[in-house]
Write a protein that binds this DNA or RNA. Structure first.
Lengths: 232, 232
DNA sequence: CAGTGGTCTAGACCACTCC
DNA sequence: GAGTGGTCTAGACCACTGT
């Protein structure tokens, strides 16, 4: 193990660790050797071992604590990386043609029927839109924008460009939350998605804030049959 | 900027970069200074700058290419990290009591109505179970296990322990896929979840493989009202 | 070809935390 | 107190890729 001439990469170290775990040499809950020992035994710098183990810990496979050392996670669940693409990209990458249609725009919406997060925002704009894939309704978008945080400029009121694309370019955000849920399709949305009333639809609700200030809330309702794929 | 006496951490560098982006000094699509320049200007080692930028790139905020340099992503969408907890933990962490009930177990299931991924597996076991939160049905689990890849041992046929918990301990996996989707609740599942037939339910389907060998396929159907939360 | 990021090394100091 | 991971530094070489 120490006899290799070429330097070991941090990915080699990861492979080594994964092999031990998969083979059962290191079981969930077990402590594994410390960085210094691993570096000496495998024949590389501790920095290299550190990077390998640090990233495995970030993925949920290992648990590390100073002084206590590194252990195989009791339940080594891999964390999934969720890439949230632009709707445009999600459609074009599957080889279909993208089209955007604005359904409604209100520069200042009355403070009724608002998502909770928007309570207390003095000025809110509302945009409703449809995204098509090959001229079939793909997803319905309902969006509220805090126009105090994001002054509306010459954005043509999102007639031709998705509010999402405009926002992501003009208000790069720092934090947010995302939630997925299923629901019966609301009556008005059913019309736009051209699906039967009462169909089960997949929804994503996203809140975005810059610093502490809420920027936008958006609810996406996907046409029936949609599946959100993730890699583990 | 160069006058600080204490060493800058890689997180300081990230903050600096984020500040430039948020302030609009570096816009989506713009090139930013190279690592060597940043290190000199900010007063730290290039290694430190590298780690800061590398991780921002992994999060989707920057795009990096050798020779071409580093740019702010045209659409700086943050990647979400999706932590997939054990169902037991998901329930107990919200302060509720967890209970598991096996509904059915077939050590060797007839090869009909199988998910596509299982075609060609010679021996497949099937487990069906319910997970309760405070004695209310929380999620219904339908699971197929490739018993060639995972020899069933003394696991009591999952009467008392979730197949997931057993598998994650005894067959740490390497890869897999995950998909989320909405559907009308199947009639038999509706009974178990104690919800109205035709309710919209949130589903997660997961496939796990060790090396190239399929280990398990599981479909989770959550009781109506469930929301999957993620942090961005 | 030459500029840029990707990585490894060796050494050092520090921060946390278990004992 | 002492062991462990967390991080920074300075320097080096390499791999990729735009020009």
């Amino acid at each position: 193990m120490t006899t290799s001439s070429a330097n070991l990469s941090w990915q080699d170290i990861q492979k080594y660790v994964m092999t031990q775990i998969r083979a059962g040499s290191w079981k969930p809950g077990d402590a594994i050797p410390n960085e210094a020992d691993l570096a000496r035994d495998l024949g590389c710098a501790r920095t290299t071992v550190n990077r390998a183990l640090r990233e495995l810990a970030a993925e949920g496979l290992l648990e590390r604590k100073r002084k206590a050392g590194t252990r195989v996670a009791k339940y080594p669940t891999r964390r999934a990386k969720l890439h949230i693409p632009l709707i445009r990209d999600e459609i074009t990458e599957s080889g279909r043609e993208y089209r955007y249609q604005r359904l409604a725009f209100e520069p200042e919406v009355a403070p009724v029927n608002l998502p909770d997060a928007l309570k207390g925002c003095p000025r809110i704009a509302y945009v409703e839109a449809l995204h098509f894939a090959n001229d079939e309704p793909f997803v319905h978008e309902a969006r509220w924008i805090n126009t105090v945080a994001v002054p509306a400029k010459d954005h043509n009121e999102f007639a031709d460009i998705s509010a999402n694309e405009w926002l992501v370019r003009n208000a790069p955000f720092t934090e947010g939350t995302l939630e997925f849920f299923a629901s019966d399709v609301p009556a008005d949305v059913a019309t736009h998605l051209q699906c039967a009333p009462g169909s089960a639809v997949f929804n994503a609700k996203r809140q975005t804030r810059a610093q502490t200030q809420l920027v936008t809330v958006v609810v996406l309702s996907y046409a029936p049959g949609y599946r959100k794929l993730l890699a583990l």
